[in-house]
Design a protein around this nucleic acid. Structure first.
Lengths: 142, 142
DNA sequence: ATGATTGCAAATACTTTGCACACCC
DNA sequence: GGGTGTGCAAAGTATTTGCAATCAT
């Protein structure tokens, strides 16, 4: 994903291209693979555009996520993280330092092999499907 | 999982059996499958033991989770939820009403089949591994 | 011109913490 | 008795909201 592609996607979706959005795109695309949280994006962005506001960061990330430009990773013990890598992959989340590593497989993998390749030791697997339950599926029409 | 089993597990782990913990266990075990949040457990518990405090609920859920008695489900847009079902399964999370349905497979499943069986329409799959990255694995010894 | 977007401040939601007291083992 | 567990209040963290001003199209 490049800067230009993302801006193009914004345009397609009818979103305005503001300096703040360009800035946030830049931060997101730096040092890939990157999984920054809102506060990091804010801090990084503020260095270059001191006027940047945290609510703008949140609003922007919402929009981007809603449009499928980025993926939001939600956690309990730490703030949400955002990623631009939209290819199917598994996120390996370090419970100690919060580091997030991309592993290029959308499927449940052999953990021994995973550890061998990445040095990551799996403690807990989390597999969840988000969507609509039967009731809400019916209501959604309305 | 029964009330007695859970209390036994507490004993094994060297945790004290207090009235509050019994109460929270009872709430957790009711109307299975159940995925209550801290606030629901608190509300339900307070009905029966008005003195119950929310911090006790949180502390208790932490301990239970730490000991592997329950599993904590973490979300962004809603509070954490807790479940006693420790068997391998997938959680189907309704993005509209927050309902959580257990699906008895630890593996990625055929989504058409899943929808047919449960009425749940999958929008987003989330597969994550939690554990320790290479660096933290080394540090952990210390 | 017009509506989307921004920035600020305040509010919210959830969770954690400090500390004194109470209770389980 | 000793230390874990509890309850209260206060603080903390992440995120959201209301609203007026500003900017992109």
């Amino acid at each position: 994903m490049t800067r230009e592609t993302m801006i193009e996607r914004l345009r397609e979706k009818g979103l305005k291209i503001t300096p703040q959005r360009r800035l946030i795109i830049d931060v997101l695309l730096e040092r890939q693979p990157f999984h920054p949280g809102a506060s990091l994006i804010y801090a990084e962005g503020k260095k270059r555009t001191p006027g940047l506001s945290l609510s703008t960061v949140y609003a922007t990330l919402h929009e981007f996520s809603r449009c499928g430009l980025i993926k939001t990773l939600e956690f309990d013990q730490m703030e949400n993280r955002y990623e631009v890598n939209l290819e199917e992959h598994v996120n390996l989340i370090c419970q100690r330092c919060g580091r997030i590593i991309d592993y290029p497989s959308p499927f449940i993998v052999d953990q021994a092999e995973l550890t061998e390749k990445t040095g990551f030791l799996v403690q807990k697997t989390r597999l969840e499907y988000y969507g609509y339950c039967r009731d809400c599926l019916g209501d959604r029409a309305a």
